[in-house]
Simulated scan of single mutants.
Amino acid sequence: MKYLVTGAAGFIGFHVVQALSNQGHEIIGIDNLNDYYDPALKLARLAQLEPVAEFSFIKLDLADRDGMAALFEQQQFDIVIHLAAQAGVRYSIDNPLVYADSNLTGHLTVLEGCRQTKVKHLVYASSSSVYGLNTKTPFSCDDSVDHPISLYAATKKANELMSHTYSHLYDLPTSGLRFFTVYGPWGRPDMAPFKFTKKIIDGDAIDIYNNGNLSRDFTYIDDIVEGIVRVAEKVPSANKDWTPEAGTAKSSSAPYRLYNIGNGNPVQLLEFVQTIESATGITATKNMKPMQPGDVYKTWADTQDLFDAVGYQPKTALKEGIKHFVQWYRDFYQV
């Protein structure tokens, strides 16, 4: 099979390319290599992929309409795994227009490319951020997600709606994955596991928001990648029994599905910090701070639908995953 992986130099995309190449698939990866975080880390990931015979990289921005159309026309992909996006809840508060180009226009260029070249299946990244003001846990794809509290979350909800439109109008099979806090080797510097580890090792204080009264559904990268690859192989079909009145957002009369992909086991922020302290052998200095705009108090994934569909069941305990991450961090940065 021939795959397109967008965001191939990103954290999750890099690992997905590795997994697909191990299965013998041909992969084209694209990324614009922007400076949202240090491009050197993205280039280092790509350097790891250079020996992979099945992989080719093209530097391309999703918002480049002509470039994206030409890519799809020339390559004729079987399956698209669309992971590229402008990430970050807090960054979206200060830089909202960036999200329109990458997450809205960019998602539309992918949808158009899939439609025009009759791609067999589009798998795309949504986010647990779409649950916004929801307080009922665990979060389920049966729940309403009409009250986002960050622009980032709103763009991800928009991606789900846009995808459904294309599934309905053009019979394009689409599967959206709502990711819950992913961590592991080669992780993003803007996320808590990386930031906390760096500051603790460097001897700097870490900021603990809402006095630590937060919890996250931390999910190890290997578990996430296994779920993505399994979903890519599970092409959705129309649910003939679905109706708008009785149905839910996770399914449709179109070939469209939504899944949570997470660990299903929320961890208190202070417990998470203690796990990093144990892995590094260093006690952190903590600054207690108020809640940040756009943040949610708790994330917790109900992953039963994903288990039913593809047998997804995360295996990596937090202690083990953090140990692997800290070891990678020390090796990569030589600290």
Rank of each mutant, 00 (worst) to 15 (best):
D302L: 11
P185T: 11
D204P: 04
Y297T: 10
S215A: 14
L46E: 04
T181L: 10
A8M: 07
R90C: 11
C114D: 05
L41D: 08
L104H: 14
S127H: 08
A205I: 06
P148D: 14
M288E: 13
V335P: 09
Q292G: 07
L83D: 02
L151Y: 04
P244N: 08
V335Q: 12
V267G: 11
I30D: 00
L258R: 00
L20H: 13
D35M: 09
G281W: 12
L172K: 00
L43I: 09
F332G: 01
P185W: 08
D302G: 06
I58T: 10
D222K: 09
F325T: 10
S150G: 12
T280H: 00
L177I: 14
D302T: 05
L306R: 01
V16M: 05
Q76K: 14
A63G: 14
T243F: 15
V182Q: 07
D171G: 12
A40Y: 00
L177Q: 04
F72W: 06
G321C: 11
M1Y: 04
T303I: 12
G29L: 01
L214F: 04
L172Q: 08
Y256M: 07
F55M: 12
T299N: 07
V17T: 05
F77M: 00
V235H: 06
Y333R: 15
L104M: 14
I79W: 04
P193T: 11
Q23F: 09
G227I: 05
Y37S: 05
L71C: 11
T283L: 10
L43E: 14
Q74C: 05
S278K: 13
G227H: 07
N95W: 03
A70C: 09
V119W: 08
I200Y: 01
F332K: 10
Y36S: 11
K199C: 08
T105R: 09
Y124E: 07
G321N: 02
T316C: 07
K315I: 02
A192L: 04
A232K: 03
A279T: 15
K199W: 03
S129P: 12
T303V: 11
P293D: 12
Y91C: 12
L20K: 05
H168F: 13
H25C: 11
F14T: 01
R45N: 15
L111P: 03
Y329V: 06
H82I: 06
A317Y: 10
Y131P: 12
L151P: 04
D202Y: 02
A63L: 09
W328P: 13
V229Q: 10
K315H: 10
D308F: 02
P185D: 11
W328N: 13
Q327M: 14
I208G: 03
I261P: 03
A85L: 00
L172V: 14
A154R: 13
V80A: 01
K286L: 05
E73F: 10
H25F: 05
A53T: 05
E271I: 15
A100N: 10
L318V: 15
Q274L: 07
L108W: 09
T155P: 09
F139C: 03
Q86R: 08
T109W: 11
I276M: 07
S21P: 10
V326T: 08
R45A: 14
G311E: 06
L60C: 04
S252C: 13
P51D: 10
A53R: 02
P244W: 01
Q268R: 15
N287Q: 11
Y166P: 06
N263G: 15
D222T: 02
Y3Q: 07
T181G: 09
G67Y: 06
F196K: 05
G262T: 00
V231R: 03
V130Y: 03
G67P: 01
G262Y: 02
